[in-house]
Computed example of a mutant assay.
Amino acid sequence: MNTAQHGRRIRLSAGALAVLLALVGAAFLGIGIHAQEHAPQPPASAAIPYSTTATHSTSPTPSAATPGPRSAGAVTGPVLNASIPTRLDIPAIGVSSTLIELGLNPDHSVQVPPQGRDSRAGWYRYSPTPGALGPAVLLGHVDSVQYGPGVFFKLGALRPGTLLTVTRADHTAAVFRVDRVVSYPKDRFPTLEVYGNTDHAALRLITCGGAFNLSSHSYENNIVAYASLVSSHAA
């Protein structure tokens, strides 16, 4: 297979990145102070700095929001042709969600999944499709005032080695294994580590976490689950 055609890269302007991080880390994911339960958090040890092949930055608005493509020779692990994701299943935390497509609003801010009783995750369509080369991005609510726990309420309970499946429009199921789960303070979010180019088919699951700040009416952290493609099969 020609991996060059699978190297679609996330297209986020610096402004869009800033809005995305603000939304993912704040009101986008609900106001958990009213929730009946507190969402599980990753262990503190998961926040130890971790070296990856992605470019790193602690700035939420990097000057290079779209790193250059890697050569085909640098690709590691399985890679699939591009295909729109339709469903996410994470049995370990009870997630079974159809996926909606998320794009950009007229003001170039990133769209987010609608709040509702049927909380669903969304795929940011300017990121690679899950299974293709690069970091596919899925966003989901942790909770909301009106509806309680959201689709990613238990994301912080994921542990390395957990398997999850993304079903795609081409009737393949892409199987990912969780590499690590990290809770980042919003003001130290490593933008390029999360969204930057990778040498493999990667997945980023993002929600909000940490303590709820009564002054800002938002959560103080983002929870990010990093995963890598390990196999695929017919859906």
Rank of each mutant, 00 (worst) to 15 (best):
M1C: 13
A4R: 10
H6C: 15
H6R: 14
R8E: 12
R8C: 14
R8V: 15
R9F: 12
R11V: 15
L12Q: 09
S13Q: 11
S13G: 14
G15V: 13
G15L: 14
L17C: 13
L17M: 15
V19Q: 14
V19A: 15
L20C: 08
L21M: 06
L23T: 14
G25T: 13
G25C: 10
A26Q: 13
F28R: 14
F28I: 07
L29N: 15
G30F: 09
G30E: 09
I31W: 12
P40W: 06
Q41Y: 06
P42N: 07
A44Y: 05
A47E: 12
P49E: 10
T53L: 10
A54I: 11
T61K: 10
P62G: 04
R70S: 11
A72N: 05
A72F: 04
G73W: 08
A74T: 12
G77N: 03
G77H: 03
V79K: 02
S83I: 03
S83R: 03
S83H: 05
I84M: 06
L88W: 00
D89K: 02
I90A: 01
G94V: 00
V95E: 00
S96M: 00
S96K: 00
S96I: 00
T98K: 00
I100K: 05
L102K: 03
N105C: 13
N105H: 12
P106W: 05
D107L: 06
D107R: 02
S109C: 07
S109F: 09
V110Y: 11
V110C: 11
V110P: 11
Q111S: 11
P113G: 04
P114H: 09
G116V: 00
A121T: 03
Y124D: 12
R125S: 15
Y126D: 13
S127T: 11
S127Y: 11
S127L: 09
P128Q: 08
P128A: 04
T129V: 12
P135Q: 05
P135S: 10
L139P: 11
G140H: 07
G140S: 06
G140L: 01
H141G: 00
V142R: 15
V145Q: 15
Q146A: 15
Y147N: 13
G148D: 09
G150C: 06
V151A: 10
F152K: 04
F153Y: 09
G156F: 02
G156R: 06
A157E: 05
L163N: 03
L164C: 01
V166Y: 05
A169D: 07
D170R: 03
D170Q: 02
A174K: 01
R177S: 02
D179H: 03
R180V: 01
S183Y: 04
S183R: 03
S183N: 02
K186C: 03
K186H: 05
D187L: 11
D187N: 12
T191M: 02
G196E: 08
T198W: 03
D199C: 04
H200W: 03
A202F: 04
L205A: 03
L205H: 09
C208P: 07
G209R: 09
G210M: 01
F212V: 10
L214V: 10
S216I: 07
S216P: 11
S216Y: 10
H217M: 12
Y219W: 14
N221I: 05
N222T: 15
N222P: 07
A225L: 02
A225Q: 06
Y226A: 09
Y226R: 08
A227G: 05
L229H: 07
L229V: 13
S231H: 08
S232W: 07
S232K: 05
H233K: 15
A234M: 08
A235Y: 06
